[in-house]
C-alpha cells in the first residue's frame, strides 16, 4: 500500500513536471549559474583552478537542491491537495517519500548534466569517477530526504524561503563535509581506506535520515 501510493503520487508529480517544465528548468539554470559564479570567484590569472572542483561541485548541488524544494509542497497546498495527501491509507508517508524521490530525480539529473560542465569550466578530469559518483549518490540521497522533510515541515511557516536554508544547511553539514573530503581524496588518488571512512559516514547519515525523517514527519503532520 505504501509503495503503491508513493508510486501514484510520484507519477502525478512527474506528469505535472513534464507538462509544465517549470521547476526543473530553473533548477538546472540556477545550478549552471552557481558554477559560473564559483568559477569567477576562484579565477586566478584567467584560470579557474582544478583544485576547487570538489568545493564548487558540492556547494552548487547544495544550493540548487534548495531551489525547487518548497515548491514541491506549496504546489500541493495551493491546489488544496496537501491535506488529502497527508491522510492516505498509509498515513503521511507516501507524500514525503514521493516528494523525496521527486527531489532525488531532479537533483540526480541536474548532477549528471552539471558535472561535465564543472569539469570543463575548471579544466579538470575525474581521477576516480566511480568513487565520486558514489559519493554524489549518497549525498543527493540524504539531501533529498532531509530536504523533503524540512520543506514539508515549513510549508505553512512565515518566511519559509529564508528559514529553509537556515535549517537545512547546518543539518546537512556532515554530508557536505564528507562529500567534499571524499571528492578531494578521490581526485588525489587516495587509497581506499581513506575514502571508505568518509563514504561510511555518508552512509550512516543517510541511514539515520531515512529512518527518522518519516517518523518525525508523521508526528508533526498528524493531528
Amino acid at each position: 500500500m505504501l509503495l503503491r501510493l508513493t508510486w501514484l503520487l510520484l507519477q502525478k508529480d512527474l506528469r505535472i513536471a513534464l507538462r509544465s517544465r517549470e521547476v526543473f528548468g530553473f533548477m538546472l539554470l540556477f545550478a549552471l549559474l552557481c558554477v559560473v559564479v564559483f568559477a569567477f570567484g576562484f579565477l586566478r590569472e584567467g584560470e579557474a583552478a582544478a583544485a576547487q572542483v570538489p568545493g564548487a561541485l558540492w556547494v552548487t548541488l547544495l544550493f540548487s537542491g534548495t531551489v525547487g524544494l518548497l515548491r514541491l509542497f506549496t504546489a500541493e497546498d495551493e491546489g488544496g491537495t496537501l491535506q488529502l495527501a497527508q491522510r492516505t491509507l498509509a498515513g503521511p508517508h507516501p507524500l514525503l517519500l514521493s516528494k523525496a524521490l521527486m527531489q532525488l530525480l531532479f537533483s540526480g539529473v541536474t548532477t549528471l548534466l552539471i558535472l561535465p560542465i564543472v569539469l570543463v569550466f575548471f579544466d579538470a578530469a575525474l581521477a576516480q569517477p566511480g568513487v565520486v559518483l558514489a559519493a554524489l549518490a549518497l549525498g543527493l540521497l540524504g539531501q533529498a530526504m532531509l530536504g523533503a522533510l524540512v520543506a514539508a515541515l515549513l510549508v505553512h511557516v512565515r518566511l519559509r524561503e529564508v528559514l529553509l536554508p537556515l535549517v537545512l544547511y547546518p543539518l546537512l553539514a556532515p554530508l557536505l563535509i564528507a562529500g567534499v573530503r571524499a571528492t578531494v581524496l578521490a581526485q588525489a588518488h587516495a587509497p581506499a581506506e581513506a575514502l571508505n571512512g568518509w563514504l561510511g559516514l555518508m552512509l550512516a547519515y543517510d541511514a539515520l535520515v531515512l529512518a527518522v525523517a518519516p517518523w518525525l514527519h508523521a508526528r508533526v503532520v498528524e493531528v
Partner: peptide, 20 residues
Amino acid sequence: ALASLAAPVAYLIHVAVAKW
C-alpha cells in the same frame, strides 16, 4: 522535530570534523 533530529546530526558533525 528539528531539535530532536539535531542531536544525532550533531554527533555525525562531531565525527566528521574529528576526522579532519
